[in-house]
Amino acid sequence: MRILVCVKRVPAPGARIGISDDELDVDSTHLGFTTSPHEECAVEAAVCLVEGAEEGGDVVVLTAGPPAAEEQLRYAASVGATELVLVPIHGGGSWDPQATARALTDCVTALEAQDGPFDLILFGNESADAGGYQVGVRVAHALDRPMVNGAKSIEYSDSVVVVRRATDRGVEIYEIPTPAVVGVREGINLPRYPTMRGRLASKKITITTFDTFPEAGGLQRRRLHRPAETASEPIMLGGGPDAASAVVDVLEELGLT
């Protein structure tokens, strides 16, 4: 079984993110970077599927990003990825969703021409930073494959993938034939931590570079900025358990008790 996972290097979630002087990008000077959370789970899901497959298989991890995205590829290898591919974005910045999808589609087509088709291509549900909610769908359409997003579980057998996804009204179950594309949601698993052996092995894997220069799409960034902060001080209801009475006064005021 062959699975491709597309990941994105993003600033670590939780950090306060600054903006560069030209307002076109985040200020990466003091930022740590990581793999976008949904995609970290997608890598884990792929590794689990291959580990569970009788015939074994390969987990290829692909990213479009700056040369520094090597860090996220090697991390993926330290937790079980077997092949690493970088589509470099030269000159900094990022691609718009259409350009990203075009580049990834070109790369997937080339990888499949060389080593055979992928049974599954996994994406994260959406990237933590840009949150475009579309690159995976666009790649699936370009490759003429079925796509299900928001996966909270993936089962694979006999060329069929069963995907479960949670909604407000329960769990939806999809069954699509492979080759297929699936968007993974955090919560599908708890990603493993790299072992020392994994870390050492990940340093030795060769990263394949695939150069492509996709046509830009119609959505273009002009400026990044921060939402206006509401400068309100919290109302202090007290300290310790003695504040309970003041809290319940507020609950009553709001009509919630």
Partner: peptide, 10 residues
């Protein structure tokens, strides 16, 4: 962007 912690003009 970032779920609402940043805004992007496009």
């Amino acid at each position: 962007q970032w779920g609402g912690s940043l805004l992007e003009d496009c």
